[in-house]
């Protein structure tokens, strides 16, 4: 309980710090939201009245506290450029980012766990060598590059999907997931490769310990040793990585969204930064920070579940 309280407090402090930094960053970079809106039609008077309307003429701290005050009451504000509620804008795009992240994460798990185990089981064997070599290559391919290759191969040459033919989830959910498959794959590949490597080495280390030998001597089959004894212990270091991978995938989806022309959160984030649309940028970044913190918290709790000897303080 005490732990949860502590965690919660540190979470709030982190979020506050993130929001402050983002706010500050926007104050420092060149570009003015009012001018971004008026473009080349700006006249000094109109610029001034728009700045007043947007509340940009107030001192930095006043603006910050006003914003954070409204944010805490659930009012995320209105987008400067679109004139629609930031809450609506984000909730419309959230399913896209969630689906893509979950799909990519599921791919990481589905690929890496079986392969990691297989590789560890055949340590030093031919299969292990093949997996390890392949791993090394895939690990070093950045998602934007694999994204382009995938688009070229599956989109242009094989025509398994239409590049840029994104279908909205409320239009056709099946087609929507279908379109997300390849972007998710491009994000998942390097992460899965890293996971295989981590899991393999964790399992190999565990297999060399005394307790697997004891387990064998008690008459367990290799599979029993692997699945009921070694795997649990081997997963602990990998779990941290999975947590990191999940948050990485979420933020990495910004790039995949660009490459595959998916109008998700990342795309809004980028254009909002370019338009100096603070309310939108603030909300999305805070949301992402929040997810990162929560995932880390969950990973901590999971440790305990996997290994009761670990206590989180």
């Amino acid at each position: 309980m005490k732990y949860a309280g502590k965690k919660l407090l540190s979470m709030l402090v982190t979020l506050l710090a993130v929001s402050f930094l983002v706010f500050l960053a926007f104050d420092l970079i060149p570009g003015d939201p009012a001018l971004a809106q008026l473009g080349t039609n700006a006249t000094p008077e109109r610029l001034e009245s728009l700045r007043e309307e947007m509340g940009l003429n107030e001192p930095f701290l006043v603006r910050y506290f006003k914003w954070i005050g409204a944010f805490c009451t659930g009012d995320l504000g209105t987008s400067y450029s679109y004139h629609i509620s930031v809450g609506d804008m984000i909730s419309e795009k959230l399913p896209i980012s969630i689906c893509m992240t979950l799909m990519a994460f599921a791919m990481v798990l589905l690929i890496s766990i079986p392969l990691g185990i297989l590789s560890a089981k055949h340590e030093g064997g031919r299969l292990d060598t093949i997996i390890c070599t392949l791993n090394q290559v895939l690990m070093s391919v950045p998602p934007f590059f694999s994204g382009i290759l995938i688009t070229l191969l599956f989109g242009i040459i094989l025509k398994w999907f239409t590049p840029g033919g994104f279908v909205s989830y409320d239009e056709n959910f099946g087609a929507f997931l279908g379109y997300l498959f390849f972007p998710a794959l491009s994000i998942a590949i390097p992460k899965a490769a890293m996971s295989v490597k981590m899991l393999r080495s964790a399992l190999v280390t565990e297999l060399e310990k005394d307790y697997p030998r004891t387990a064998y001597s008690r008459g367990n089959t290799p599979n029993q040793v692997m699945y009921s004894h070694v795997l649990k212990n081997g997963l602990i270091p990998v779990l941290t990585f999975f947590g990191m991978a999940l948050t990485d995938i979420l933020t990495g989806s910004i790039i995949a969204e660009q490459v595959f022309a998916i109008p998700g959160l990342g795309r809004i984030l980028l254009t909002s930064i370019m338009n100096r649309d603070y309310p939108v940028v603030q909300a999305i970044i805070l949301l992402m920070a929040f997810v990162v913190i929560v995932v880390n918290f969950l990973v901590d709790l999971l440790y305990q579940k996997l290994d009761p000897r670990i206590t989180v303080e």
Binding site: C99, L102, M103, A106, M107, L110, L158, K159, W160, F161, T162, G165, F166, V167, E171, N172, G174, A175, L177, G178, Y179, L180, F181, F182, A184
Partner: peptide
Amino acid sequence: LIGLLVFTALTTALSGCNGAG
């Protein structure tokens, strides 16, 4: 749920059908 998600994705993608196309 995750399984279903992946399965649907796989089948739709592999069958090559895509609404917009």
